[in-house]
Write a protein that binds this DNA or RNA. Structure first.
Lengths: 185, 185
DNA sequence: GGTAACATGTAAGCGGTTACATGATTAG
DNA sequence: CTAATCATGTAACCGCTTACATGTTACC
């Protein structure tokens, strides 16, 4: 129970997961994160290299030195123990932290303190932001479909989730804006 | 341009906003935050009291000592300058940071690494979590309606946004789970 | 008389980011 | 030759949370 599999910080599993999906270098991991999970998780480059070292020490990934010139370079593969640790983490369903920090909704919540004009502008800005997010995410669909064709449906699922909730937010904004004289008592 | 109105950290505006909506003590501010904006913003008690002092120093709120016994106690009101600062912050629509950190979506993204059974369980856990959130938020509707009756429609708006958001996520989960043999190639 | 709710405050620590520093390789 | 991209690493800092500390008031 007190084994390593459930005790690591989340970003470590992100790194492990990306290696399991084929990312080899720290650099590739960072890129894959930006391409695939950025809208619900971020990780900074400064976290990745220490994570990889930690994973290597624990035997969850295997590193290989591939220096070029005087420059250090390493590639990584997941080990059997790593696969097991990842599965154990995925199986641990208990507490699923969800954290949203949205200055847009925050401002909207307080919008009664400002003029109807500024409030309407704010509402439109929030709507537009979500609508743009929908477009950005929809543009990634081909990449997700490719993975889907290879038998991995989950990246498509999380992508559709992002599209759906941003669309839902945009719709609520539009509905509210369309309400007659919503800015007056 | 370099005035105080746009340069304060976000949590300061949260405190200011809550005071403007009628919260008097630091304690009340914390409670109101938990009741109204918790699903898109959190603030810890330890941030509130320094924020209030800062706001008082800047003349955005006015504090009044109301000690009880040896215990310090203060109540606060927003000043005209505070109203102006809040409006200025609300009017500044430029960059609206939206930050989501969701371990549920993260695990789902990597779910192909585990067994179909565990993946299905995970999906169901994420769906249930959102469905529960919908119920929790829907329970707040009466309180929001009260504010709406007083002419402030925005708390209702952000509440409906949260409900729509989580309902959309739950729906995508349910759709995916209903797809025939989604766990096989 | 005890417990819960009201109420304020501080200190330590952590998780994370930004910025800096370095160097190789490829494309134009 | 130079800019962009590939690639790795460290140090400083900061926002925020947890935990601790303390005392009051109301209710059962």
């Amino acid at each position: 129970m007190t084994d390593t599999s459930v005790g690591l910080p989340v970003h470590t599993y992100v790194v492990l997961g990306m290696v399991s999906l084929g990312a080899r270098s720290g650099y590739e991991i960072k890129q894959d994160v930006e391409r695939s999970i950025r809208f619900f998780w971020t990780i900074s480059q400064a976290q990745i290299y220490p994570s990889l070292e930690r994973l290597e020490r624990d035997g969850l990934v295997r590193g290989q030195e591939r220096p070029s010139g005087r420059r250090r370079r390493r590639t990584f593969e997941i080990t059997a123990a790593g696969q097991a640790a990842l599965r154990a983490w995925l199986a641990d369903v208990a507490p699923i932290p969800f954290e949203l920090r949205d200055v847009g909704l925050l401002k909207l919540f307080f919008a009664n303190a400002t003029s109807p004009g500024d409030a309407a502008e704010l509402l439109e800005a929030v709507r537009r932001r979500s609508q743009e997010r929908v477009a950005t995410l929809a543009a990634i669909r081909p990449a997700a479909s490719e993975l889907e064709a290879q038998g991995n449906l989950y990246p498509s699922l999380t992508l559709e989730m992002g599209i759906a909730f941003h669309q839902a937010m945009a719709d609520v904004c539009a509905d509210f804006a369309a309400r007659p004289r919503h800015h007056q008592r």
